[in-house]
């Protein structure tokens, strides 16, 4: 029973990271129609930058915030490279993000080496229904929920958020009312960077990250995003959590090496079942 709760909570925590990464996919895809394959890379950036800053004696909190914002800036730059040239088709932009993510892996090895790195988290453990759970994992869940609330308030209430929603809804009409749709695209990459960075910073203390983490993180995030039809942020959260929990249960009771396969299977199943609604979304 204790084992089960441990798997459950750590699954929810990893699922939250998938959801943050997945919502990055959603935000960029809605505004630019590009599937941003640097999404996992941005999470790795977040985790690794945080580890370096913490070693450089920045206090907890500040280091993590700086790391998240740095990931946001890197996301912005990636967005500019991938979609900056006017009229670049989404498929070409996708290939550019794929290239950027490969380049970044080389960059990670150059600066941080090949070994997985785990920056210190908040440490300690908390009792949850009799099971000892690392407090960091609970922090992941709390911060993710806050991030999702802020994200949806941002889209519904803020001036820029409404501009992003308008640009996503109908780019031609958005231009008519004076919205710079290209800038909104860059901005969406920046937001994706912040979301990815946040995921990396939160997850790295319990699940060490390295240059090779970008693919499993991106896959998990993408599966969560597909669960949300690549449009719904809240369904992405649900998808991430389902995926995280199933993955942890499989890892706990069967074998740890099946996690990525579980994500892939889930993604394939959803894509085949929901194929029609996904392609309808594409057609718009």
């Amino acid at each position: 029973m204790n084992d089960f709760i441990t798997y459950l909570v750590s699954g929810v925590a990893i699922g939250c990271a998938f959801a943050l990464i997945g919502s990055g996919f959603v935000v960029v895809h809605r505004v630019t129609r590009v599937v941003n394959f640097t999404q996992g890379t941005l999470a790795v950036f977040g985790g690794l930058i945080a580890s370096t800053l913490l070693k450089g004696a920045l206090p907890h909190g500040i280091a993590e915030i700086v790391a998240v914002l740095s990931a946001g800036v890197i996301g912005l730059i990636f967005g500019f490279i991938a979609t900056g040239k006017r009229g670049t088709p989404p498929l070409i932009s996708l290939l550019i993000t794929l290239g950027l993510s490969t380049l970044s892996a080389a960059f990670f090895i150059l600066f941080w080496g090949q070994n997985p790195i785990s920056p210190p988290g908040i440490g300690g453990a908390t009792d949850v229904l009799g099971a000892r759970i690392e407090t960091q994992r609970l922090l992941v869940v709390v911060v993710t929920v806050i991030a999702f609330v802020v994200l949806s308030l941002f889209f519904d209430r803020s001036y820029v958020g409404k501009g992003l929603t308008a640009a996503a809804s109908n780019p031609r009409a958005a231009r008519l009312v004076g919205i710079n749709v290209r800038w909104m695209g860059f901005l969406s990459f920046g937001i994706a960077g912040v979301l990815g960075g946040l995921a990396g910073v939160l997850i790295a203390p319990t699940n060490a990250v390295s240059f090779a983490s970008d693919l499993p993180l991106a896959l998990g995030g993408f599966a969560a995003a597909v669960f949300g039809g690549l449009v719904s942020v809240w369904r992405t959260l649900l998808g991430g959590i389902v995926l995280g929990v199933v993955g942890q249960l499989v890892a706990g009771y069967l074998s740890g090496s099946y996690q990525t396969e579980v994500a892939l299977l889930m993604m394939l199943a959803i894509m085949i079942v929901r194929y029609k609604s996904l392609s309808a979304e594409e057609a718009k």
Binding site: T165, A173, A174, L176, V177, G178, I179, N180
Partner: peptide
């Protein structure tokens, strides 16, 4: 029509205020 289909009529009109921000983005 060049509208924002997922928004209400009122929201569609509110988005129009963007063009009035001559100061820019």
């Amino acid at each position: 029509a060049r509208l924002f289909p997922e928004m209400s009529v009122l929201e569609n009109v509110m988005v129009g205020a963007n063009a009035a921000t001559r100061a820019g983005a």
